[in-house]
Computed example of a mutant assay.
Amino acid sequence: MTLLRINYQLLRIPLQFVEHVAITQLDEQAPARLAYEKLLIQCDRAAGYLLNDENANGRAAELHRHTTAVRVGIASRHRRVDAEGATLLDLQRARFHRRRRPHRDTDPA
């Protein structure tokens, strides 16, 4: 098991290098960054489970907490934008109906 853990740690070095050099330069909410972080979480969870590696479990848990907070922020912003859009649409619909009413009253039909 120890040999497998060492191999995983060696495999993780290039992944960490990519994370530190390229991924951290991206915005926290960038889809590419979130996808890469999800990959790291899955790799660490697998290593934690298969190799009984507590360090990998800890890394996965910490990164999962961080990305969850980012995703919740993104979802909150999307809900707020959707609510604002729905409110604006309701206002425009009401304005449209107010403008249409006088035309119906003056139609000779």
Results as ranks from 00 to 15, higher is better:
residue 102 P to G: 00
residue 13 I to T: 10
residue 95 R to K: 12
residue 87 T to W: 09
residue 103 H to D: 10
residue 60 A to C: 00
residue 87 T to S: 14
residue 18 V to H: 14
residue 76 S to R: 14
residue 10 L to F: 07
residue 18 V to N: 09
residue 80 R to C: 09
residue 79 R to D: 07
residue 45 R to N: 05
residue 7 N to R: 13
residue 104 R to T: 12
residue 31 P to H: 04
residue 82 D to N: 11
residue 53 D to G: 04
residue 72 V to A: 13
residue 80 R to I: 07
residue 70 V to Q: 00
residue 11 L to K: 13
residue 56 A to Y: 00
residue 92 Q to Y: 07
residue 62 E to Q: 10
residue 32 A to Q: 12
residue 87 T to P: 00
residue 1 M to K: 12
residue 3 L to S: 12
residue 31 P to K: 01
residue 85 G to M: 12
residue 16 Q to F: 07
residue 105 D to M: 09
residue 75 A to T: 05
residue 92 Q to P: 00
residue 76 S to K: 15
residue 98 R to F: 02
residue 26 L to T: 01
residue 79 R to M: 05
residue 48 G to F: 04
residue 31 P to Q: 09
residue 33 R to T: 01
residue 98 R to Y: 04
residue 54 E to I: 08
residue 38 K to T: 13
residue 103 H to T: 06
residue 73 G to Q: 06
residue 36 Y to W: 07
residue 36 Y to I: 01
residue 63 L to W: 03
residue 78 H to A: 15
residue 47 A to V: 06
residue 84 E to D: 14
residue 29 Q to W: 02
residue 67 T to C: 03
residue 7 N to F: 13
residue 15 L to H: 13
residue 94 A to E: 11
residue 80 R to W: 10
residue 2 T to P: 04
residue 83 A to F: 08
residue 16 Q to Y: 09
residue 55 N to R: 14
residue 71 R to F: 02
residue 52 N to F: 05
residue 56 A to N: 01
residue 75 A to P: 03
residue 20 H to D: 15
residue 24 T to D: 06
residue 59 R to S: 05
residue 41 I to L: 02
residue 71 R to S: 09
residue 30 A to L: 01
residue 31 P to I: 01
residue 96 F to H: 14
residue 24 T to H: 06
residue 92 Q to D: 08
residue 68 T to P: 02
residue 35 A to R: 05
residue 74 I to R: 03
residue 78 H to T: 11
residue 1 M to Y: 11
residue 11 L to M: 13
residue 58 G to T: 13
residue 19 E to N: 13
residue 22 A to I: 11
residue 92 Q to F: 09
residue 29 Q to R: 13
residue 21 V to N: 08
residue 43 C to E: 06
residue 88 L to H: 12
residue 101 R to N: 05
residue 60 A to Q: 02
residue 19 E to R: 12
residue 95 R to V: 04
residue 93 R to A: 14
residue 78 H to I: 13
residue 108 P to K: 09
residue 2 T to F: 12
residue 79 R to K: 10
residue 92 Q to M: 11
residue 62 E to M: 07
residue 101 R to M: 09
residue 32 A to C: 04
residue 6 I to V: 14
residue 85 G to F: 09
residue 28 E to R: 05
residue 56 A to P: 01
residue 59 R to N: 05
residue 58 G to C: 07
residue 91 L to Y: 08
residue 6 I to C: 04
residue 38 K to P: 02
residue 100 R to L: 14
residue 48 G to K: 07
residue 1 M to N: 11
residue 16 Q to K: 11
residue 105 D to P: 00
residue 83 A to P: 00
residue 68 T to N: 06
residue 88 L to V: 07
